[in-house]
């Protein structure tokens, strides 16, 4: 028996919007730790890791570890039927081949049940080693989204370079090239508007902008984004989900042939 009650049901809606274009089918794992997902895109270039900790749910019952295979587009379709203020409960019986999403309006005057078929998904779980990153950039998520969108109108790849001057996002294409430099800025009034750069070593890596743009669909989940870079390692683009956990996107770099 599994029953997870999330008062902020719209968090789940936002999570699905953030991952459904990157990953088609995925296993959601449920354990005493929380509700999690790890999945790669079909070309194995990007990986998404989601954790919603059990403490973040108003009610969290998970009698045994379960893995539920879901088509993310279908799940997104069902969650779109929940109101933004609705409380969402995820329910599944042991051994069942369906999952139920229950939506309750805040004043309890409307209750809806949406039952979705589960699927068997053969996915390999990857071990993500702890790494010391050469540079960690924290910036407003909307600013990062804007930069990725702007650069993708010029080129297909972005070079992210961190030096003591700041973080530079560069691209080049047929029509020309573009560079955006963001400097550390902690003097703004609101911490969510600041940019901080923690650099242990200068680092410069090249990535496909198509994936970066896909990651920015998680922008509504968090006002800030953290970009962790190390030479010859996948970049980690992390959006913290307040009180609950995180969504992390890993993207393999383009490397010298």
């Amino acid at each position: 028996m599994l029953e997870l009650r999330l008062v902020q049901g719209n968090l789940l809606k936002k999570v699905l919007e953030a991952v459904k274009d990157l990953v088609t089918d995925a296993n959601f794992d449920c354990s005493s730790t929380g509700f999690s997902l790890q999945a790669m895109d079909s070309s194995h270039v990007a990986l998404v890791a989601l954790l919603l900790r059990s403490e973040g749910f108003e009610h969290y019952r998970c009698d045994r570890n379960v893995s539920m295979g879901m088509n993310l587009n279908n799940m997104a379709k069902m969650l779109k039927c929940a109101g933004n203020d609705d409380i969402v409960t995820i329910k599944a019986d042991d051994g069942s081949d369906t999952v139920t999403f229950m939506f309750e309006s805040p004043n309890q005057d409307k209750i809806a049940d949406f039952e979705m078929k589960l699927m068997d998904i053969d996915s390999e779980h990857l071990g993500i080693p702890e790494a010391e990153y050469h540079a960690i950039v924290r910036m407003p998520s909307s600013e990062f989204a804007r930069i990725c969108k702007d650069l993708s109108s010029i080129g297909d790849t972005v070079v992210i370079s961190v030096t003591k001057e700041g973080v530079k996002f560069s691209t080049r294409g047929d029509i020309g090239n573009a560079n955006v430099v963001c400097r550390q800025n902690t003097t703004v009034d609101k911490p969510e508007e600041s940019t901080t750069i923690e650099m242990h070593e200068p680092v410069s890596l090249t990535f496909a902008l198509r994936y970066m743009n896909s990651f920015t669909k998680a922008t509504p989940l968090s006002s800030t984004v953290t970009i962790s870079l190390s030479s010859e390692l996948p970049v980690v683009v992390e959006y913290k989900i307040a009180e609950m956990g995180y969504i992390r996107f890993y993207l393999a770099p383009k490397i010298e042939d």
Partner: peptide, 14 residues
């Protein structure tokens, strides 16, 4: 020339 690497080149199953 740069080529796209894959996640599986960095993280192994487990």
């Amino acid at each position: 020339v740069r080529k796209q690497s894959q996640i599986t080149a960095f993280f192994s199953p487990g």
